[in-house]
Amino acid sequence: MSPWHAFQAWRRQREARRHPLPAEAWQTACRRLPLLAALPADEAERLGERAWAFLRHKRISTPETAEFDLATRLGLAAQACLLTLGWSDAEAGEAFANVHEVVVVPEAFRRHVAEMDDAGVIHEYEDERVGETWFQGPVVISRIDLLDSGGWNGFNVVIHEFAHKLDMSNSRDADGFPPLPRDIDPREWHRVFTAVWDDLQAHLAHGRPTPIDAYAGSHPGECFAVCCELFFSAPGRLRHAYPALYALLSRYFAQDPLARRRPANHA
């Protein structure tokens, strides 16, 4: 460990002693959210500390209602931090250095979108969104969809939007190519994701149902975010559809969410 990382570790330990994790609120968050309840005790403890640190260092703007108690806010932060649970404290901190604020809005919202296609033609349309992320900007999440997240059903707006933030760690745009650990060759990443992308495009071109949410075929950045969403909240579905991608993401996140599932509730 470098002197700088050692110093940062000391600072985190000191801060944790000065601001201990509120145990009752964290236990409530874990009971409410199946994704958290499935964690082994040691992983749950580490995630709780990271979620608590996240709340203390990031601006969280939520509606002033009883449903946004401390346990709900911890649950939100924990679902974001779940993405980096398998990484070191230093790596986890660097991963979300571009996150400064999370804004929870009442419900899905509409945006006017103007996009240029490969032929240079501008297409304008109204797009309804349950979440939104900008480079060095806030993460915006719909309250209704936040409260629907946290289970094993394949939907998680927090994981989806924070996957975009990981993707934007090395560029202004979400392009499906985040910074990679040393043990993953960029050529392998490109090959595996390209195979998934091509398969999705083939299904869409022939009007066939896609193996995963068709939204993954709308843009490479959305492909990455949707696959991350499934990796954590419906791991069996992703592994069944694209086993090579599941294995790659397991190495990338240094986690195996499928191992957390009870056999009777295999998803």
Rank of each mutant, 00 (worst) to 15 (best):
H57T: 14
A38H: 09
T65S: 09
A90Y: 12
L83S: 11
G86F: 15
L85P: 09
A78E: 02
A53S: 14
E45T: 12
A97Q: 14
G75Q: 12
A66R: 07
G93N: 07
P40I: 05
V103C: 00
G93P: 03
E45C: 08
A77M: 04
L76R: 01
R46W: 01
A95V: 06
A80R: 09
E43R: 14
G93Y: 11
G93M: 04
E49T: 06
R50N: 05
L85I: 14
A37M: 00
F68K: 03
A95M: 09
V104W: 12
L82T: 04
H57C: 09
E43F: 08
H57R: 15
T72L: 03
D42P: 00
L39N: 03
V104E: 10
A51I: 10
E67S: 02
A95D: 11
E101D: 09
V99E: 06
D69T: 00
L85C: 13
G86I: 15
G48W: 03
L55R: 13
E101L: 11
W52K: 07
G86A: 15
R73Y: 01
A80F: 08
A78Q: 04
C81I: 00
K58G: 13
A53C: 09
W87E: 02
S61T: 15
H57W: 10
T65E: 13
G93I: 06
E43S: 12
E64P: 02
G48H: 07
F54M: 05
R50E: 05
L70T: 10
Q79W: 05
A71V: 11
L55S: 07
S61Q: 15
R59C: 08
L36Y: 03
W52L: 04
D89G: 05
A97W: 12
F54P: 00
F96V: 08
V102N: 10
V104F: 13
R46A: 07
G48T: 07
A53K: 14
L74D: 13
E43M: 11
L83D: 11
Q79T: 01
A80H: 09
Q79A: 02
N98C: 11
V104Y: 13
P63Q: 07
A38P: 04
N98Y: 13
W52F: 09
G75I: 10
G48A: 09
A95P: 08
L47D: 01
R59P: 04
R59A: 12
S88P: 08
R59H: 13
D89F: 02
R56P: 05
L70D: 03
E64S: 07
A66P: 01
D69Q: 02
A66V: 01
A92L: 06
T62V: 15
A78M: 03
G75E: 11
A71C: 09
A38I: 00
A80N: 08
V104C: 10
G48V: 06
D69W: 02
G75L: 09
S61V: 15
L82D: 06
E43I: 02
A92T: 08
A92V: 04
A51F: 14
